[in-house]
Amino acid sequence: MSTTTPQAPRSGVKRRSAPEWTKAFSPRNLADTMLTGYLPILIALLIIVLPLVWMVSSSFKPVNEIVTLTPQLLPQEATTENYATVDRRIPLMTVLQNSVIVTSVGSIIKVLLAITTAYALVYIRVPGANLIFLGILVALMVPPEVSMLPNFMTIEALGGRNTLWGIILPGLGTAFGTFLLRQHFKSLPKELFEAAELDGAGHFRKLFQIAVPVSLPAISTVSLVTIVNEWNSFLWPLIITDTRDRMTLPVALNQLRSVEDQVSSYGILMAGAVLVIVPMLIIFAMLQRYIVSGLTQGAVK
């Protein structure tokens, strides 16, 4: 009722002869929506999307359409030659395989460690747990550039140069996931665990039969953000590998860039960019809700 009352006197006003809904499609209102709504959105979208469209399109262009002085948006004679060239310059399948292994093994271990650490911080009472948490928070703040040099020496001393475990190991200690999951576990109601405690369930059962199942959205968020970061990771793999068979995709593409430094090589570089960008675009498009919430954590409460 309350929603209809304000409209009743309005429709009684004689000056407004046309019904309310036609106003929504009046030329003035349409122009207004276009100008203040869609036009700026369109401009923003073009700025974001056009470079990516240009990348995909150029990766299928033959050399003469790259070096031309009259470039077209779409390839006139599409070819996959650029991708074949990438494969000739870098051992593409090996490099892709390295990236997939590093990303999946690294992410699985990191997420498991984050879950168990966060659970311990919230549910296993020991003196000084807050101090340990503070130590993890400070670790969150240390950028990889700061620890790069000593880590390089540690891993080199352990014989980890040009090995996949050497790429994975130093990044395994996880502060981000621990922090995020700790906040989440703290918000779980205590009653959830009471029945299990009466049954005499230990921490393992409480963690894997109660805490994990009810926290799947938060765990998905942590997993996806971790996967994205591992796949894109560049600095550490760049330092610790120098043989092509052990490189991850971003490092191999950086090397491709230094080999292919002619104007005519841009098609090849765009093919490389597609290979590293498109997988994450697909994952993001499918699961953006989790990823956005994980990456904007702290800002959006």
Binding site: P51, W231, V274, V276
Partner: peptide, 8 residues
């Protein structure tokens, strides 16, 4: 990937 974006 920052590397991919930089190439583009």
């Amino acid at each position: 990937s920052g590397v991919g974006v930089a190439l583009v």
